[in-house]
């Protein structure tokens, strides 16, 4: 299952935090900053999988291998779009490559909703950001990966607000984020 979805920007400021297990706020913040440290030092040519951050590595080491194995978060997947990092922490029941696609769908859905999405949209409409994620993941389990259905689901909850007019700036440039044209598209 998916344990957490995080979005933060290039300087480590959170834009979305969603933990599918209850976690102390301070621990949440520490985890975010640990992951940011890991992710910020990676060149663009690196792969999209992170080693486990110390917080998770220590706790997963302590559990006995085998029985507990599938319950422990073991995979940190991320994608970097313009100014934002999208991170998914998951257990081994998720497929690493499919998660990359999942993030892509998430961003595409946001792009569809906001028409050329950029970080500012997400800052000012973080409720919509949560609603979009809520259409895709419930309780750590993926419920929808179809772009149209996700967008439809969010729109049914009400009009998606536009960013304030005077705040406009370049979007996340969906077509241009490095390896955006996923060759292994899982859809």
């Amino acid at each position: 299952m998916i344990n957490a979805v995080l979005v933060f920007n290039n300087s480590g400021q959170p834009r979305l935090t969603k933990f599918y297990t209850q976690l102390e706020t301070s621990v949440q913040q520490r985890l975010i900053s640990e992951i940011f440290t890991l992710v910020a030092n990676r060149p663009n040519s690196s792969c999209n999988f992170l080693p486990l951050p110390p917080l998770l590595a220590n706790s997963s080491k302590s559990t006995t291998p085998g029985a507990q194995h599938n319950d422990t978060p073991s995979l940190v997947t991320y994608r970097h779009y313009a100014t934002l990092y999208f991170i998914v922490i998951s257990t081994s029941t998720e497929s690493p490559l499919a998660l990359l696609d999942f993030i892509q769908v998430f961003v595409e859905a946001l792009d569809r909703l906001f028409e050329n999405v950029c970080e500012l949209d997400l800052i000012f409409n973080f409720e919509t950001l949560h609603a979009t994620l809520g259409e895709m993941i419930v309780g750590g389990v993926v419920v929808e990966t179809g772009l149209d259905k996700v967008v439809e689901g969010v729109r049914s909850q009400g009009k998606v607000a536009k960013r304030p007019v005077n705040e406009s700036k370049g979007g996340l440039t969906l077509s241009g984020f490095g390896r955006g044209e996923v060759p292994w598209a899982g859809r």
Binding site: N9, Q13, Q29, R30, I32, S33, E34, T37, A40, E167
Partner: peptide
């Protein structure tokens, strides 16, 4: 990591930069 902000206390969200170039330059 122990010297990282956020380890010792809460993270303070400072002002968001409007300028995307400025953010870009923050990347190592």
């Amino acid at each position: 990591p122990e010297n990282d902000r956020g380890y010792h206390g809460g993270v303070v969200p400072y002002a968001d930069s409007d300028d995307s170039e400025a953010e870009e330059s923050l990347r190592p």
